[in-house]
Design a protein around this nucleic acid. Structure first.
Lengths: 216, 216
DNA sequence: TTTCATGTGTGAGTTAATTCACAAACTACC
DNA sequence: GGTAGTTTGTGAATTAACTCACACATGAAA
C-alpha cells in the first residue's frame, strides 16, 4: 500500500477514532483500505457473506430489514464514527448478513479484513471496548425499534422518525417524499400524508414538495 | 467455597458447557456460584444494575420489554445452555438493564461476577466464542421479533408463538390462559380467543381450559 | 351441592391504518 | 408555455385489532 494511503488512514483514525490505542491504529493502517461509496449504493445484502468490517467515518448508512413483498423497515442509521454491529458479530464465522445496508449520502469507510477481528479483540483493549460498545448501542436501538413498533401509533412513530432524522442530519430540513417516509415506517403514503398534514396544522412542521421543515 | 460446590459446578460445566476449554472451566469453578431461582421470579429489571452474568443450565427464562402502561412484550426465551446477551454486553461498565427477565419454571444458574468478563474474553478463546455467538443469536432473535411485529398479522404471530413455545418446551401441550398469551403478544384477550377458536376450527389446535394442544 | 373465582365465547361499536380512486399541484424539460 | 411525470390532498370503503358488555363454562373450596 502506498505511503500516501497510509498517511490518509492515520489522519482519519486520529480525527474520528482517536480512542484507539497506538497498536491497533498501526494495525488498521497496515490492513485497512479506504473506500468511497456513492449515495444510495447497497453496502450489504441479505445472505451476502460478510468479508470485511466497515468503519464509517463520513456520510450516513441506513440499516433496514425487508419482508417478502419488498417492504423496507428502517432499523437504524449508522453515523460517522460507527460501525455495523452485525458485520462485527459475524467475524470469522462465514456468516451471512440478515439485514440490508444502503448509503444515504456519499460515504467514506475504512474497510478492515474480518479475519483479523478475533486477534485484535484479544490483543487491543480499546478495540475490544469499541466493538462491545457498538454491540450495546445497536442492541439498544433494536429494542427502541421494537418499542416503537409494538407500543406506539403511527403518529408518534412518524414524529420520532422526523426528529431523529433531523438530529442525525443536523438540520431542521428533511428532504424526502411522503412515499419515502411511508416505506421506512412500513406504512402507506396516504397515511403519512394525512398525519403530516395534521402535524402541520398543529404547527409542528412546515410542508413543501420533497421537503419537511421541523419547527423549533 | 466448599469442595462439594466446586464439584457440582464442574459437573454442570461438563454436562452443559463442554465446549469451554479447561482454563475457563477452572476459572468458573473458582468464581461461579450455583443459584436456584423459583418459578416466576424476577431475574432482571429495567434500570437495575447488572452485577453478574447468569449462565442458565436448567429451566427457562422469559426476556421481555414493558411499556409505560405495564404491557409486556415477549422478546425471547432463554433456554438451557444459554446466557443473557444483555448482561454480557453490559459487563464492566456499570450499565443498567433495558429489559426484564423472569423465570418461567424453577431454574438453575451459575452466576459469574461481571468484573471477570473482560479478562476472560481476552484469555479464553472458547469463552470469547461463546459470548460472541450468544450476541449473534440474540441479535437475530431481535430481528425476528421485529419482523413479526412489523410485517405479520396477529394470526401468524400467534401461530408462530405457539409452535415456538411448543418446541422450546418440548411438548405439544401448552399451559396458558388466553390472557397470558395476549399479554405476551401485546394484544387483547378477546382477539386471541377468537383467533384460537378459528385455529381450532381449522384443526390446527385443540382447546381446553388453561391448555392448548398443538395438533401434529 | 352450592358458591365463587377464574376462564372462555361472542355480539356490537370504535378506532387506526390500509387500499382504491381520482383530483390537484408542482417541476422539469422540450 | 405546454406537456408529462411526480408528488400531494382527500373522500370512501374495507379491514384488523381493540374495547365494552355480558353470558356461559369450569373447577376448586366451603
Amino acid at each position: 500500500m502506498s505511503d500516501h494511503s497510509k498517511e490518509e488512514i492515520r489522519e482519519i483514525l486520529d480525527t474520528h477514532f482517536n480512542e484507539f490505542e497506538p497498536g491497533i491504529k498501526e494495525e488498521i493502517i497496515e490492513e485497512g483500505i479506504v473506500k468511497y461509496i456513492g449515495k444510495n449504493e447497497m453496502l450489504m445484502d441479505v445472505n451476502q457473506p460478510i468479508t470485511s468490517i466497515p468503519l464509517l467515518y463520513e456520510g450516513g448508512v441506513k440499516i433496514f430489514r425487508e419482508d417478502e413483498d419488498g417492504n423496507e423497515l428502517l432499523i437504524y442509521y449508522l453515523e460517522s464514527g460507527e460501525s455495523c454491529a452485525l458485520s462485527l458479530v459475524c467475524s470469522g464465522r462465514d456468516k451471512t448478513s440478515q439485514i440490508k445496508a444502503r448509503t444515504l449520502t456519499d460515504s467514506k469507510f475504512i474497510m478492515l479484513p474480518i479475519y483479523k477481528m478475533d486477534l485484535w479483540m484479544t490483543k487491543y483493549r480499546t478495540w475490544y471496548y469499541y466493538v462491545l460498545e457498538t454491540y450495546q448501542r445497536r442492541f439498544e436501538e433494536l429494542l427502541q425499534t421494537i418499542d416503537s413498533i409494538a407500543f406506539k401509533n403511527m403518529d408518534e412513530r412518524l414524529f420520532e422518525y422526523l426528529t431523529n432524522l433531523s438530529e442525525t442530519q443536523n438540520s431542521r430540513i428533511i428532504n424526502a417524499t411522503h412515499q419515502n417516509i411511508a416505506d421506512e415506517l412500513n406504512s402507506s403514503r396516504e397515511v403519512i400524508s394525512r398525519l403530516l398534514k395534521k402535524m402541520e396544522q398543529r404547527g409542528l412542521i412546515q410542508l413543501s414538495r420533497n421537503q419537511i421543515e421541523i419547527m423549533p
